[in-house]
Structure formats: C-alpha cells, structure tokens
Amino acid sequence: MKSLGNKWLIKNRWWTIVGALFVVFLAMAIWSYCKDKHIAQWLQLLTLTSFVVFVIGLCNTLTNIFSLRKKENGITWCQIIILLSIGLWILGFILIFNIQSGNNNTIVFGIIGGLLTLIFQDKIKGVVTFIHLRANNLLNIGDWIQVPKLGVDGEVRKVTLTTVTLYNWDTTTSTIPISTLHADHFINLQHMSSGKTYGWRIDKTFIVDTECFHTISQQEADMFKSEDFNKQHNILDFLPENEIKEGALNARMYRLYLYHWLMSQPDVSQLPRLVVKWIDQVKEGMQLQMYVFIITNNLDDFEWHQSLVIEHVMESLGWFGLRLYQRPSSYDENTKEAAL
C-alpha cells in the first residue's frame, strides 16, 4: 500500500507544485497585508484557492489509491474532504471580500452564485446522492449494478462526488453521473452474486407438444415401477409411487417428477420458492414453467448448473412420453413432401 501510494504521489506531481504555490502565496499575503489591503485580498484568495486545489488533488489521488484497494471508508472520507474544501473556499471568498447585505458586491456575487447553482445543479445533486449512497451502504467498489434507463450493466470501479465509473461486461467502460442513481432506479446484484441471498434465479419456460399428452395404461404404470426402468432413470426416487397408476396423466406425472427432482438437487434452494407449473396454452403447445434458485456465488457456476437442469428436462421428458415443441423447419417440410 505504501509503495503504491508513493508511486502515485510521485507520478501526480502537478498538485505538489500547487502546494508550493500555496506556501508562496501565503507568504506574500502576509507581507502585503501590512502594505496594501486590496492586493492582500487577492493574494488571500489565491492562497485559499491553491490550498483547496492542493487538498482536492491530494484527495483525488488518494481516492484512486483507495479505489484500487477497495477501501470504501477512505474513498468516502476523501470525497467528504473535497466537499468541505469547496465549502471552505466559498466561506473564505465571502469573508475575504467582505460580502454582506447592503454591499455593492453582494448583488453581483449573488447573481453569479445563482447562475453557478443553476449550471452545477447536477453536481450538487450528485453530492447529495453520494452522501445518501455511502451513508446507506448502497454502493461499493466492486458491486455489480444495472441501470436499466442508461443500459448500463457492469462492475463499479470508481465512485466520486459526481460520477460513477463502471466496467461493463462487454469490456467497455461507462461513466455515469452519480445523481442518476438517486433519481432513477438501479439494481445492485452484488448480494446475489456473492451468494448472500437464496440464490440465482432460473426462470425458464418450455413448450411441450400437447399431441403426446395421454393417460398412462397399466402396462406403462408397471414399466415406470419396474426395476430395470428405475435402474436406468431412477424416477421412483423423485416421484411418489401412488401417483403412478393407470389413468394418470403423463404430463402431471412429469410435473411432479421434475418438482421433486429439483427439490432434491444439492444446488437448488427450496426457498423462497421452487415452482414447476403449467402456464398458458399457446398454439404450439402447453408451456411448462420452471422457477428455481441455484445456490452459488459465481456466474459461471450458475450458468453451468442452469445448463445441467435444462439438459435434464430435455432428457427426462422422453421418459414420460413427452416432447418439446419444435416448429417444423424447411428441411422437415421438404423431407415430408419428398416422402409423400
């Protein structure tokens, strides 16, 4: 940390020059105070300005260092010090030029102040947002956030009083005004991605061809219960035996099977909900919805398990005499015509 800090401090020498200027101006201001008060006022302002610029430069450099190390408190304090420095500059300005009601300068400075407020209103909102986000711990370096309105989806790299810099998943970088995060809704996925919630959601719908829906015969029921069949597919571990009987609908049996199968998977959370249900019928067939949560703290792991679950659905549908709907392709049509 120390060597990293030194490297940054040496590299960013411009504000050390400002620091030296601050000392020079301070000396001159003290000297001129005794000689000419008008010059002294401007020298005092220069002294104050160079001091504030020095502090801002130092804090920005430290913010970069703290951002690299994800030192959240350090970043917050640096930004607050920047804010206080700006406040100090405004206060100093008022005191140096003796701006009071009735004074000629008051109107001019009032108008300038009003205009500056108007111009920098987003910055001011940004400051408020920054304080709000940091005080409530809503945004940290490394958080994965989405801002739907701006189409931004990535990892937070830097947070300042006015902007948030994000590294998007498509490897581009976005810088957005921090005030957006106060005015519009944003999604912080960090808790989910670090495995601190029930898990990552899979919400998939499969269209099952209704042509293959049927009630099972006694022969089929016996087959489902047979040792050979279960050696291969193991369905009795996940389907209550009393559900396997002549006249039972294969689609219902499959829904129950899939539900119990998911409930027993070591990476599937039973809470907050695990749903396997039929939803609206569409012209292609019946839609089977699967709504489950995978326990993991890694995107790749989640995708892997999601694929395993989907593959199991594709595989197991056939055991129950069901199949997924597939719109006929031109190849299918041509093959059919050729056969005819």
């Binding site: 029930y198 898990g199 070591p266 990476d267 599937v268 959370s269 039973q270 809470l271 326990i295």
Partner: peptide, 9 residues
C-alpha cells in the same frame, strides 16, 4: 449444513 441452507434456511 449445505443442505440446511437450501431446505430450511
């Protein structure tokens, strides 16, 4: 413990 986390958290 892992199963408890998914069965009865």
């Amino acid at each position: 413990y892992r199963d408890l986390r998914r069965i009865d958290p």
